[in-house]
């Protein structure tokens, strides 16, 4: 069974990768299994300077999901390049750097910094973090802004750029078309949906940031719908994500039009989940009559 898939700048031996922010820089999960089995790894978001992030509590459980408002905590791009990228690269797995910023210039600088290493295969442009006021979401909800930042990053680097779209918009297709027009090599979707949970006893939002990003199986139908819609209007490939827990979910994303699939929240419940999905995927594809991953992409669109 051929489960390899080719995306711009990414020759993936399988379509599975941990999603940004749910896998740190891989160190912790490397104690559970050999990260070489992964199709790729998407690193936690990098900003130019180190960021501490939001006050705690930063997470809350919901029905079939969770809210988080970490706030882009990271040690800054230089430190990531020095200590984290070489570690991940040692597993011979394509490394995708998620980049965030509060200005277009910051995005450019972070992108350039990653390009100077030869160990990053692609960039994921985070214009959709809902938890930081000046952390990218202002670029992710307006098509012209998304276009502008994508153009700037494309101009600053030769690395393939995957733009991570926010579902917190009224017209996802318009956003996708705007970044495709700006030269994006691919899309990554969806980021979390803004949500809130109120603690009854204290009568206050559970998350210190008040709102957080909803992830997990609760958002999977939204991700599937958005990918299904976007796929029909763009020609660049999509890395799909949102509530993937098992190989069947991966197939559903492929059918909706994703070419590769990222696994996020599920890693917290089961640290082996990516490895298990990779092992199971050939059987699931076969069960539903497919002989490769490529064969299944977009086949659910009617």
């Amino acid at each position: 069974m051929n489960i390899a898939v080719e995306l711009p700048g990414l020759a993936l031996k399988n379509p599975i990768m941990p999603a940004s922010g749910c896998f740190g820089f891989g160190r912790e999960y490397s104690k559970f299994y050999d990260l070489h089995v992964l199709g790729a790894v998407i690193m936690k978001a990098a900003t130019l300077q180190a960021r501490f992030g939001n006050p705690t509590p930063r997470v809350a459980e919901t029905s079939a999901g969770m809210l988080n408002a970490i706030g882009l905590q990271n040690p800054g791009v230089e430190k990531i390049i020095k200590t984290e990228v070489p570690f991940l690269a040692s597993f011979s797995v394509p490394v995708i750097a998620n980049i965030a910023g509060s200005t277009i210039e910051e995005y450019r600088q972070v992108a350039k910094a990653f390009e100077q290493t030869n160990q990053v295969a692609a960039l994921e442009l985070n214009i959709s973090c809902p938890n930081v006021k000046e952390g990218g979401i202002q670029f992710g909800t307006h098509p012209q802004m998304a276009q502008k930042v994508t153009e700037a990053v494309k101009e600053a680097t030769n690395l393939p750029v995957y733009v991570k779209l926010s579902p917190n918009v009224s017209d996802i297709v318009e956003m996708a078309k705007a970044v495709e027009k700006a030269g994006a090599d691919g899309l990554s979707m969806i980021n979390t949906l803004t949500g809130m949970q109120i603690h009854l006893a204290s009568r206050k939002p559970v998350i210190a940031n008040r709102t957080g990003g909803l992830s997990g199986p609760a958002i999977k139908p939204i991700a599937i719908r958005m990918i299904y819609e976007v796929k029909q209007h763009v020609s660049i490939p999509i890395i799909g994500m949102g509530g993937v827990m098992q190989a069947e979910d991966v197939l559903e994303f492929l059918l909706a039009g994703a070419s590769a699939v990222a696994v996020g929240t599920a890693n917290f419940q089961n640290p082996y989940v990516c490895k298990e999905i990779i092992e199971q995927l050939p059987y699931t594809l076969k069960q539903y009559g497919f002989n490769s991953v490529k064969e299944a992409i977009g086949k659910g669109i009617v």
Binding site: G24, R27, F52, V59, N68, Q73, V206
Partner: peptide, 29 residues
């Protein structure tokens, strides 16, 4: 104690400041 995500140090949900200048430690790890 803190609400945790991964519980192994990857998700940064349970960070605690070590000072008021941006230093931190992860409670779980």
């Amino acid at each position: 104690e803190e609400r945790m995500g991964c519980g192994i140090g990857a998700c940064f949900a349970c960070a605690v400041p070590t000072d008021d200048r941006g230093g931190y430690k992860k409670i779980c790890q």
